[in-house]
Computed example of a mutant assay.
Amino acid sequence: MSENLRSQIVTQGVQRSPNRAMLRAVGFKDEDFNKAIVGIANGYSTITPCNMGINQLAQRAEVGTKTAGAMPQVFGTITISDGISMGTEGMKYSLVSREVIADSIET
């Protein structure tokens, strides 16, 4: 895994002690602060069958990221069920929601 230049912004230096304390609370060890931190967006949800298998994929991505020498951090995303919203006012938001979901992951 290449240098963690972006991750160093939040892990290196005295001024980042609070950041490291928070990351220790989620399982980071001393050596982990020298690794790249990789975010894994997980859209798993039980509200729609489309998202039921995503958690297994996120878990596999987490294992692969660790194997590559980085520190994976899994985070959830919002989701919408077209099947539930079909025929309701909510259906108007189905396509728009994809942009909102993509924006939330990027943020």
Rank of each mutant, 00 (worst) to 15 (best):
V26R: 02
I78Y: 13
P72K: 00
K29S: 09
Q12E: 12
R98P: 03
V100A: 11
E106D: 14
L95M: 13
V26W: 09
T46P: 03
S94Y: 15
R98Q: 08
D32V: 03
G69K: 02
I80Y: 07
A102H: 06
R20D: 11
F28C: 15
Q12C: 12
P72I: 01
A25N: 15
E99P: 06
R24H: 12
E99G: 08
D30M: 11
G87N: 03
S97L: 02
A102I: 02
G76P: 11
I37C: 14
R20P: 11
G27K: 00
D82K: 01
F33W: 05
F75N: 07
V14K: 04
N51Y: 15
G13D: 08
V10C: 08
E99C: 09
N4S: 13
A36S: 13
I37Y: 15
K92A: 14
S104E: 07
E31F: 11
E3P: 10
E62C: 14
D32S: 03
G27P: 13
V100D: 10
P49Q: 07
E3Q: 09
E3Y: 08
G83C: 12
E106Y: 12
I40C: 06
G43H: 09
V10F: 15
G53M: 08
I105K: 00
Q8P: 01
V10W: 12
S104Y: 10
M52K: 01
A25S: 13
G43K: 00
G90I: 00
D30W: 10
S94I: 02
I105T: 01
K29F: 03
T48L: 06
G43F: 14
S85V: 02
Q15L: 08
Q59H: 03
G39R: 01
Q56K: 13
A68G: 14
A58L: 07
T67L: 11
N51T: 05
R16V: 04
L23W: 10
S81F: 04
V63Y: 12
I9F: 15
I54R: 01
V26P: 07
S2L: 09
D103I: 04
S17Q: 15
T11E: 12
D32Q: 02
S94Q: 07
Q73H: 13
N51A: 09
E89H: 05
V74Y: 07
R60E: 14
G27H: 10
S2H: 09
S85R: 00
T77A: 06
T46I: 05
S7I: 00
N4T: 02
G64E: 13
G13R: 00
F33N: 03
E31G: 12
T107D: 12
G83D: 10
P49E: 06
A25W: 14
I40F: 10
T11C: 13
Y44I: 01
S7W: 11
V10P: 04
E3C: 06
T88G: 10
L95F: 13
I47T: 01
G76H: 07
K29N: 07
E89V: 00
Q12H: 11
T77R: 00
A25Y: 15
E31H: 08
C50Q: 04
R20V: 05
T65E: 07
Q73V: 11
E62M: 09
E3K: 08
E99R: 04
K92F: 15
I80H: 05
P18K: 02
I78C: 05
E3T: 01
M71K: 06
S7R: 05
A25M: 15
M1C: 14
V26N: 03
F75D: 09
T79K: 00
I37N: 08
G53L: 07
I101T: 03
Q59T: 01
R98M: 06
G39Y: 13
